[in-house]
Amino acid sequence: MVKITAHFDRIFYYLFFPLVAIIETYCALNASYIAIIGGTSFYFFAALILIIQTFLVLIKKIPYYYSAVGILLLLLCLWNTHGFAFFNYLKCVALIPAIFLSLPGLKSWQQKQKYSNALKIGLIVSLITLAATQHHELAKLKNYYSTLHNGETWQQFGAL
């Protein structure tokens, strides 16, 4: 039983970091495209904050009180775009990966491997949810721009 658990942990470790990097790269590219064609730039800054927070938490192993800065920055960005009603918007999905990145810094969560693996799985699921939300926002923006067609192909997706 110990060999199976150790083997699962090794496979999970080697698959976790590339999977997180791929999903965050997709989110950053998708957010860049949304910002370029005239959508909100919140997703771009959220992806940038999450990439920096991931690097600092998972690779540099900074203390937990510094890892919570990502949550505070995302809350500040949400408050800046929507005021005090920001929890009503779909964009607060970006807070979930930041929370999953902040929890491993707590001492009580670090000591148990079961909690650590659950947090890693939760991080992957929350990043997939963020990517799906961004994809939905991009599709909605493309549908809006397709109704404004006036004969120019460069205006179809809101390019200047």
Results as ranks from 00 to 15, higher is better:
residue 2 V to S: 10
residue 2 V to A: 08
residue 3 K to D: 05
residue 4 I to P: 00
residue 5 T to F: 13
residue 5 T to P: 01
residue 7 H to S: 12
residue 8 F to N: 08
residue 13 Y to N: 06
residue 14 Y to S: 08
residue 15 L to F: 12
residue 15 L to Q: 09
residue 16 F to K: 02
residue 17 F to C: 01
residue 17 F to R: 07
residue 17 F to T: 13
residue 19 L to I: 10
residue 21 A to F: 14
residue 22 I to G: 02
residue 22 I to Q: 04
residue 24 E to Y: 01
residue 25 T to D: 06
residue 25 T to F: 15
residue 26 Y to W: 10
residue 26 Y to Q: 06
residue 26 Y to V: 13
residue 28 A to H: 09
residue 28 A to I: 07
residue 30 N to A: 12
residue 32 S to K: 08
residue 33 Y to T: 08
residue 33 Y to C: 00
residue 36 I to D: 04
residue 38 G to I: 12
residue 38 G to D: 10
residue 38 G to V: 06
residue 39 G to I: 04
residue 40 T to W: 02
residue 41 S to G: 12
residue 44 F to E: 03
residue 46 A to G: 11
residue 48 L to A: 15
residue 49 I to E: 06
residue 51 I to Y: 03
residue 52 I to K: 00
residue 52 I to D: 01
residue 55 F to Q: 03
residue 56 L to N: 09
residue 61 K to C: 02
residue 61 K to A: 09
residue 62 I to S: 04
residue 64 Y to L: 03
residue 64 Y to P: 02
residue 64 Y to N: 08
residue 69 V to Y: 09
residue 69 V to K: 00
residue 69 V to S: 11
residue 69 V to T: 15
residue 70 G to V: 08
residue 71 I to H: 01
residue 71 I to D: 02
residue 71 I to K: 00
residue 72 L to Q: 03
residue 75 L to C: 15
residue 75 L to S: 14
residue 76 L to R: 00
residue 76 L to P: 00
residue 78 L to D: 09
residue 78 L to C: 13
residue 81 T to Q: 10
residue 81 T to A: 13
residue 81 T to H: 03
residue 81 T to V: 10
residue 81 T to F: 10
residue 83 G to I: 07
residue 83 G to D: 12
residue 85 A to Y: 12
residue 85 A to V: 13
residue 86 F to Q: 08
residue 87 F to L: 15
residue 88 N to A: 08
residue 89 Y to P: 01
residue 89 Y to L: 07
residue 91 K to T: 07
residue 94 A to Q: 01
residue 95 L to E: 11
residue 97 P to N: 02
residue 97 P to W: 07
residue 97 P to L: 04
residue 100 F to T: 04
residue 100 F to Y: 15
residue 100 F to E: 03
residue 103 L to N: 05
residue 103 L to E: 06
residue 104 P to E: 10
residue 104 P to C: 09
residue 104 P to Y: 11
residue 106 L to W: 07
residue 108 S to G: 02
residue 108 S to C: 04
residue 108 S to H: 11
residue 109 W to P: 00
residue 111 Q to M: 13
residue 111 Q to W: 09
residue 113 Q to V: 04
residue 113 Q to D: 04
residue 115 Y to W: 05
residue 115 Y to M: 02
residue 115 Y to G: 00
residue 118 A to R: 08
residue 119 L to D: 07
residue 122 G to Y: 03
residue 123 L to A: 06
residue 124 I to H: 05
residue 126 S to P: 02
residue 127 L to K: 01
residue 128 I to Q: 03
residue 130 L to A: 11
residue 130 L to T: 05
residue 133 T to E: 08
residue 133 T to S: 06
residue 133 T to N: 03
residue 134 Q to D: 13
residue 135 H to K: 03
residue 137 E to Y: 05
residue 137 E to K: 01
residue 138 L to E: 13
residue 138 L to V: 09
residue 140 K to G: 14
residue 141 L to C: 02
residue 143 N to K: 09
residue 143 N to R: 05
residue 144 Y to W: 06
residue 145 Y to Q: 04
residue 147 T to N: 05
residue 148 L to S: 09
residue 149 H to W: 11
residue 154 W to L: 09
residue 155 Q to E: 13
residue 155 Q to N: 11
residue 160 L to C: 02
